Computed example of a mutant assay.
Amino acid sequence: MDVKLINPILSAFGEIIPQIGFQTIEKKSLSVVGSTFKYDGILISLSVVGPIKGVIMIGMDVDSAKRFASRMMMGMEVLEFDQLAQSAVSEMGNMVCANACTQYSKSGIAGLDISPPILMIAQGGQATLSVPKTIVIHFLVDDIEIKVYVGLV
């Protein structure tokens, strides 16, 4: 995967997250995993089609997802990761990926489209993407650890 495919996603994440109530975004690390990886918690998956194809996934543990949803919902207490909380974090994924498509367009890659977000919840879950390698970007958003998985070609 071309590393240039990552910059629009980083820009989109940096633009959208502050708009939904978060103060600090720190990129902690970047790593490469194979097409299959394990996760605990939630994964928001959005497919990308057009000149670039693949998937962008955003993951965090369930407690972090509840805190994230609470912040998005103006501090409303989230005791369970229910449909409302799931909808909130899914919408964040939708916003980030839509903005990433705009960023790609600005860099000369136009005509991208994304699928509606799919939310998966698992402990000891496994995801397999249709790309040989997946780039994982580790963020700390305020005090919430978030991983962004990018599998694009």
Results as ranks from 00 to 15, higher is better:
Met92Val: 08
Met92Lys: 06
Pro132Glu: 15
Ile146Val: 15
Gln103Pro: 01
Thr128Glu: 11
His138Glu: 09
Met92Ile: 07
Val136Tyr: 01
Lys147Gln: 14
Leu119Ala: 12
Leu129Pro: 00
Ile137Trp: 02
Gln123Lys: 15
Met120Phe: 07
Pro116Thr: 15
Leu140Trp: 06
Gln83Glu: 15
Ser90Ile: 02
Ala122Ser: 15
Ala85Cys: 08
Met92Gly: 02
Cys101Phe: 10
Phe139Val: 02
Thr128Gly: 11
Gln86Pro: 09
Ile109Thr: 15
Thr102Glu: 13
Val148Pro: 02
Leu129Tyr: 01
Glu91Ile: 12
Asp143Val: 09
Val96Ser: 01
Leu140Val: 07
Thr134Lys: 01
Ala110His: 10
Val148Tyr: 01
Leu119Arg: 08
Ile135Gln: 02
Asp113Cys: 09
Val96Thr: 01
Asp142Glu: 08
Ile121Asn: 08
Leu119Asp: 08
Gln83Arg: 09
Glu91Gly: 07
Cys101Gln: 08
Phe139Ala: 03
Gly108Cys: 07
Ile118Arg: 11
Ile146Gly: 00
Ala122Glu: 11
Pro116Leu: 13
Ile135Asp: 03
Leu112Thr: 00
Pro117Gly: 09
Lys106His: 11
Gln103Gly: 04
Thr134Asn: 01
Ile114Phe: 12
Val141Ala: 00
Pro132Leu: 12
Pro132Gly: 12
Ala127Ser: 12
Leu119Thr: 10
Ile114Val: 15
Asp143Ile: 02
Pro117Tyr: 00
Ala122Leu: 07
Thr128Tyr: 06
Ser115Gly: 13
Val131Lys: 09
Gln83Gly: 09
Ser107Arg: 14
Ser115Ala: 09
Leu112Gly: 00
Gln83Val: 08
